[in-house]
């Protein structure tokens, strides 16, 4: 197995793992805040749930990025052996690194925005719509990183 292939799959691992971890932490923050808020106001569970689910998308971007790149990489298999140039290996590694890290941080931070919003709704403030808008600010960068991963894979 060539270094290029190892690099490429390390990149894919980082992409799925870091983005997934980000989402997992993010939705947990939302879930924890929801449970706290339920004690004060249990009528707004639907709103809590929607806000808690928002940071779940980063992990999906990581997975969708993996799927796109995986489909592309499978076209480089010649006689059962994957042949990648060093350029291709590094490109996939870079895509994975970018999407992974941005997904990780944006998932965690989006989770904390949502958690604050949930706490606010629980205390009786009408801030559902505003929290939703504010919460998608950090998500944009994960979306951009996903778009970049797509463009990198298209250029392989």
């Amino acid at each position: 197995m060539s270094t290029a292939v190892i690099l490429a799959y390390t990149g894919i691992a980082l992409m799925i793992a870091l983005a997934g971890i980000g989402s997992a932490i993010g939705v947990s923050s939302g879930g924890n805040a929801s449970i706290g808020a339920l004690k004060k106001n249990d009528e707004a569970f639907g709103k809590y749930m929607l806000l808690s689910a928002l940071p779940g998308t980063q992990g999906l971007y990581g997975f969708a990025g993996f799927f796109i790149i995986n489909a592309k990489l499978s076209t480089f298999i010649v006689d059962g052996v994957m042949v990648l140039t060093m350029y291709q290996g590094v490109a996939v590694f870079a895509a994975g690194l970018a999407l992974g890290f941005v997904g990780l941080m944006s998932g965690i931070k989006q989770g904390s925005v949502c958690a604050n919003g949930i706490a606010g709704i629980g205390s009786g403030y009408d801030i559902f719509g505003k929290t939703m808008v504010l919460a998608v600010f950090p998500e944009l960068y994960a979306i951009i990183a996903f778009a970049a991963a797509f463009l990198i894979s298209a250029g392989l």
Binding site: T57, L60, Y61, F63, A64, F67, I68, L140, I143, I144, F146, A147, F150
Partner: peptide
């Protein structure tokens, strides 16, 4: 203007997940 790229990326990701 760059912010509107999200439209493309979200459309792509929902299509990819459906495909998966």
């Amino acid at each position: 203007l760059l912010s509107y790229i999200r439209l493309f990326a979200l459309g792509l990701s929902s299509a990819v997940l459906g495909f998966v």
